[in-house]
């Protein structure tokens, strides 16, 4: 049963990947491709957020700030260091990881709500830094005219974002494979052990502080890469990315997708990016969509506190239960039969 389930999942994943790869051949429209690119970027941020929030159980509310750090690191390195855009994307990841290490300093000593408050305050702090250092960061205006991607003389602005689409998809795939690897490694298991039973995990010799530091650095890396790509792709870096709307949009992706899963937030990112865009295009709903998303978030939490992915999982569990029940019935019959035979 379990084997057939994972086979089922592998099929769904493979199909999703094939569809994603073929998509640009079907969708020729720049705007629709743009939406996919944005969705892939958010998917990276949301699924990496889930590594610290869902798997490690750290109430990290500064994750979007890591994304913002990536955006600004990439933008600033092209502007002041003259870095190649490809290098700048990578530097975004490095800078975000450094920010993760910085946040980890207080976080490893704190628990519960204190972690929420410190990480939340960290995001606001980065925003205020960006706004106040306007001679470097451009303040509320942001940084504009960031150079576009180029490879072997091919400018990615050409062909209706065809190239950008595959860069975004490629980054998402690499990030997802990386996340799977992390989650299944000993390190990933130790994180879950700390989340579920900290005393026991510590008694078994898992160093709480070190693992928390590592997970924040690791989960920040691809978030920063996503941020770097975001800046290079849109060719602007604006302080709006630190604001509540982005924060709550990505958070709702993690929540709706389900904490403690990799694919849930990715699927939710794609669905919510498009849903939010559709709502925005309806006349008169442009402004109100934030309110609708807020209501949807509350409703999802009321009825599916573990996210929409839990529906899938619950069904699988029920199937597994039914299966084991069948087996039990079969076994009892067998015993009865053999008892009857011996009689």
């Amino acid at each position: 049963m379990i084997r057939s389930l994972s086979g089922n999942r592998a099929f769904v994943l493979g199909a999703a990947l094939v569809i994603a790869v073929l998509m640009p051949f079907v969708v020729q429209d720049t705007y629709w491709r743009h939406l996919f690119i944005i969705a892939f970027i958010y998917a990276m941020v949301a699924s990496n957020w889930d590594l610290s929030l869902g798997y490690a159980g750290i109430f990290n509310f500064g994750h979007v700030a890591f994304f913002g750090v990536g955006v600004y690191a990439a933008a600033l390195s092209t502007k002041f260091l003259g870095a190649d855009p490809w290098i700048a994307i990578f530097l975004g990841g490095v800078a975000a990881s450094l920010a993760g290490a910085l946040v980890a300093l207080p976080v490893i000593r704190l628990k519960g709500i204190y972690v929420v408050l410190v990480t939340f305050a960290f995001g606001q702090l980065v925003l205020q830094l960006v706004l106040s250092q306007s001679e470097i960061t451009g303040g509320t205006q942001g940084i504009v005219r960031i150079p576009a991607l180029e490879a072997f003389g091919y400018n990615f602005l050409r062909d209706f974002k065809f190239g950008y689409y595959y860069v975004a998809l490629g980054l998402l795939v690499i990030s997802t494979i990386f996340l799977r690897f992390v989650v299944r490694s000993d390190f990933g298991m130790s994180l879950r052990a700390l989340r579920d039973n900290e005393e026991y995990a510590v008694a078994r010799g898992i160093p709480t502080g070190l693992q928390r530091l590592k997970v924040l650095v690791v989960s920040a890396f691809f978030t920063g890469v996503a941020g770097g790509f975001f800046a290079i792709y849109l060719r602007v870096a604006s302080p709006e990315i630190f604001g509540f709307p982005v924060q709550s949009l990505v958070l709702s992706m993690v929540l709706v997708g389900g904490t403690g899963t990799i694919y849930g937030p990715i699927a939710a990112a794609v669905i919510l990016t498009f849903a939010s865009e559709m709502l925005g295009s309806i006349e008169g709903l442009d402004e109100g969509r934030v309110m609708l998303i807020a209501v949807a978030m509350i409703i999802v939490l009321l009825f599916f506190p573990n996210g929409l992915a839990s529906i899938w999982r619950r069904r699988a569990q029920r199937a597994a239960l039914a299966d084991s029940a069948d087996k039990a019935v079969a076994e009892t019959r067998l015993i009865e039969n053999s008892a009857g035979a011996s009689r």
Binding site: F59, F61, G112, I113, V116, F244, P245, S248, L251, S252, L255, E287, G288, V290, M291, I293, A294, V295, M297, I298, L301, P305
Partner: peptide, 20 residues
């Protein structure tokens, strides 16, 4: 997970009221 869930629901209320 009450602590975490209510952080998110009150955040949603914040979004709702601010936009409202």
């Amino acid at each position: 997970d009450m602590l975490l869930i209510t952080v998110m629901t009150t955040l949603a209320v914040m979004m709702f009221l601010e936009k409202g």
